[in-house]
């Protein structure tokens, strides 16, 4: 079946044969070309000669070889990519108890959980909400400025009201609120992995605000 056993039309074409088949094989799918005397296309034999309907054995093997090669490389690449995403993270828990509601005066922002859990707890006359202390611009930790009554990000100067609405600087959207509830023992229970975004209307979710009179 190999080219060499066939009577080649001309010596020059015979010499070019292996190179051309190797180069063309993957690029030209099942297309047994009809022999045109004198053209390079004669390198692929007509159907009648090979007895194969759509692909010579050599073509098939070479194509299978390339498919195997690229699947192997591709799988290795995907595997390495997946390798970069570990299953277990050694990061602090996102759920914590924040003490009893009576610990918090009405109308004040509590900064005592910022250091450990990056969360402010705010109490207003209707109840509680918790704000995640991460600027929506580039993720710096803003500060609560008591005197000015606002959260201010030191990185690029974004400012947020006590409600967490952005009103100055480059921040594109309000700070995120996190889930707040009452635990069975009556303490506040906060989960910072569940976030509520104002612009998606999520602040009206039941667990974004804790009614407490």
């Amino acid at each position: 079946m190999s080219e060499e056993t066939k009577p080649a039309p001309a010596p020059a074409e015979k010499a070019a044969a292996p190179a051309a088949t190797a180069g063309e094989a993957p690029a030209t799918p099942p297309k047994p070309t009809v022999a045109k005397p004198g053209s390079k296309q004669t390198l692929t034999k007509p159907i009648a000669e090979t007895g194969n309907l759509w692909m010579t054995r050599r073509n098939f093997l070479s194509r299978a070889g390339w498919v195997a090669f690229f699947s192997f490389v591709g799988t290795m690449l995907l595997g390495s990519l997946r390798y970069m995403f570990p299953r277990v993270l050694f990061e602090p828990s996102t759920v914590f108890k924040a003490g009893f509601p009576t610990d918090y005066p009405v109308g004040a922002v509590s900064t005592k959980w910022v250091k450990d859990y990056r969360t402010w707890i705010v109490r207003n006359d209707k109840g509680f909400y918790a704000i995640f202390a991460q600027c929506t611009h580039l993720g710096c930790t803003p500060r609560w400025l008591e005197a000015e009554g606002k959260f201010k990000c030191p990185c690029h100067g974004s400012g947020f009201t006590m409600e967490a609405i952005n009103f100055e600087g480059p921040a594109p959207r309000p700070l995120e609120r996190v889930q707040i509830a009452l635990a069975e023992d009556g303490q506040l229970l906060i989960d910072t992995s569940i976030r509520f975004r104002e612009e998606l209307g999520q602040w009206s979710n039941a667990s974004a605000f804790l009614n407490y009179a």
């Binding site: 910022v114 250091k115 450990d116 990056r118 710096c140 930790t141 803003p142 500060r143 990000c153 030191p154 990185c155």
Partner: peptide
């Protein structure tokens, strides 16, 4: 990580 210097 919990104390952002100003300016960063």
């Amino acid at each position: 990580p919990s104390r952002t210097p100003n300016p960063s």
